[in-house]
Every structure is written in C-alpha cells, then in structure tokens.
C-alpha cells in the first residue's frame, strides 16, 4: 500500500502478458547489460582477462629472464623498460595478471559460498542461531581488510591457499549480512509461511522459495566482492605477503620497483594501471548490476 498504484505501470505491461518470466538473476543480467557502464566494464574486464590468460604467448621474453641492465629506459628491445633486476617489464605485465584473477575469483567464490549459507540459515532460523552466527561474524568484521590475512600470514607464512582463504573469510560477514537481510525480508512474506504450512522441508524452502527471490542482490554482492578481492589480493602482494618473488604479479611488481618511482615511474605505472583498470571494470559491472536490480525491485515490489 506504500506504493501509489497509479504510478505503477499496467500489470503485465513490463514483460508483456504472455512473455515467460525469466529467473531473477538472469533478468538482472539482461537489464544490467542495457546500461552503458556495464558494457564498458565488461569489455574492459574481458580484455584484461584475455591479456592475463593469453598474454604470455605473445610476450617477447620469459618473466624471470634478465634481459638488460636494471631500470633501463623503454626502447624497441623492451617497450616498457626493465625492472630492478633487469627483467622485461612488458613481459612481466603480460604474465602478472593470471594470479590476480585466479586468486581473486577463488577468494570471492569461497567467501560467497560460506557467506550465503550462513546468511540464509541466520535469516531463516532467527533467534538463537541467528544471534550466534551474526555475533561470530561480527568478530571477523572487526579485523580491517588485509589485517586478518596478515595475522595468519605472520605465523603460517605467505602461502597462497591461506591468502585466498583469509580474503574469502573476510568477505563472509558482509555477504552473510546482505544475504540475511534479503532472507529476512523474503521469509516475512506469506508464501514462505504457505510452503511451511503444507509441510515443505526447511532445506527445500531455503533452496526453492527463498534463494530464487534473493538471487539478484547476491549477484550484485558477488560483483562487489570480486572487486574487493582483487583489491585485497593486490594489496597483499604489494606489501609483500601475496605472490612471492620471483613470480610475475602486478601487485608484487609495484612493491619490487617502488624505489624507482621517482626516476623510472613507468615501471610502476604499468602494473598500477592494470590493477586500476581491473578493479574499475569489476566495479562498473557490479554497479550496473545493482542499478538493474533496483529497477527490477521497482516493478515487482507491489506488496
């Protein structure tokens, strides 16, 4: 009743009276694609992914080969100059993206799977279980961004599985909160009660009644968390706790060549621009998705 029915377009006019209604997240994707920012973000992201995947096949050297004097200026031999050990910067840029993608995406998947599961259970169970889950997640939330990962790295050393796990874990609280908030809203609707009333088991209610109704906020959250995963993985490499030398990695490259920022800025600038473009493109997609989701909500939020 809060929405003025007169301002809501004709029912059925949105998708046509007989048009089959797609799954929520598919619809969000389709609507997001209609926005320019999503297209720009996706194209950028795809381009960077191609570079990360196939760049190594066109690289002029191998990433660990010493090809010239340290910090050589750009020339026809090495287009972006050489780094602090005399390795080809272009080659290392072409090699250095894969780790960022692989680690970032894995961390996001881990965080999403655990966060969504916890959020669903907390939002549906309420009371004691809810309180317990959310309190524990509050504890995780208290460790700022990369600090949680650093804490565990300090004792276990900079291992990749640990970095991925910790970045995923640090996403958990926020993903769980978003999931829980959306779940609580859906569970409050009568169709969930109706399903419980005919005896549908809890697991099926969560999977078939609740989850399909919260898939778009989760999709948006996934996009957003992917951006932050990449930021955190790059940051960890930058402070020396991510990928370890002599690996080629954009974050690590900035760290290694930091001292030359005054004299040879492009050695640092190249990986900085790659990371910046990657996070901006991921965030453009996330923002497009979230705009599309708000649009969908407006059409269906009649109750």
């Amino acid at each position: 009743m809060n929405i003025d029915p007169e301002l809501v377009p004709a029912e059925g006019a949105v998708s046509g009276p007989s048009a089959p209604r797609r799954r929520e997240w598919v619809q969000t994707l389709v609507e997001a694609w209609g926005l320019r920012r999503t297209k720009v973000g996706t194209v950028m992201f795809a381009l960077l992914l191609l570079i990360a995947l196939f760049g190594r096949f066109v690289a002029p050297y191998t990433p660990t080969e010493f090809v010239g004097r340290p910090f050589s200026d750009p020339s026809t031999a090495y287009w972006l100059g050489t780094d602090f050990l005399g390795r080809d910067v272009l080659t290392r840029v072409l090699y250095g993206g894969l780790s960022v993608f692989v680690l970032g995406i894995s961390a996001t998947v881990i965080g999403t799977v655990f966060g969504v599961s916890l959020g669903l259970v907390a939002g549906y169970a309420r009371r004691v279980v809810d309180e317990a889950i959310m309190r524990v997640l509050d504890v995780v939330l208290a460790f700022p961004s990369v600090v949680l990962a650093m804490l565990f790295v300090s004792i276990l050393g900079p291992r990749l599985w640990l970095i991925v796990l910790m970045v995923g874990v640090s996403h958990m609280p926020r993903i769980a909160r978003v999931t829980r908030a959306a779940t609580v809203e859906v569970v409050a609707r009568d169709f969930v009660r109706a399903a419980a009333a005919v005896g549908v088991p809890r697991r099926k209610i969560l999977l078939y009644e609740v989850l399909p109704n919260i898939s778009s906020p989760l999709l948006v959250e996934f996009g957003l968390r992917l951006t932050y995963s990449i930021i955190m993985i790059a940051a960890l490499s930058f402070i020396g706790f991510g990928m370890q030398p002599p690996a080629a990695d954009w974050g690590l490259m900035i760290n290694e060549n930091r001292i030359a920022i005054i004299t040879q800025p492009w050695v640092v600038l190249a990986p900085v621009l790659m990371i910046g473009a990657l996070t901006i493109s991921a965030n453009l997609i996330a923002d497009g998705l979230s705009r599309a989701m708000v649009g969908i909500d407006r059409d269906t939020a009649q109750a």
Partner: peptide, 21 residues
C-alpha cells in the same frame, strides 16, 4: 565509482606520481 574501485595504494602511487615525482 572510480575512486571506490581503486586500491588505496594505487591512489597513493598516482598521488605520488602527480604531486611528488
């Protein structure tokens, strides 16, 4: 949107490049 996407050390490096070096 752009600033929120960038890791803070990337912003910092850009600041350094622009205002310090």
């Amino acid at each position: 949107l752009s600033l929120a996407s960038l890791p803070e050390f990337v912003i910092g490096i850009i600041m350094v490049l622009v205002f310090a070096t």
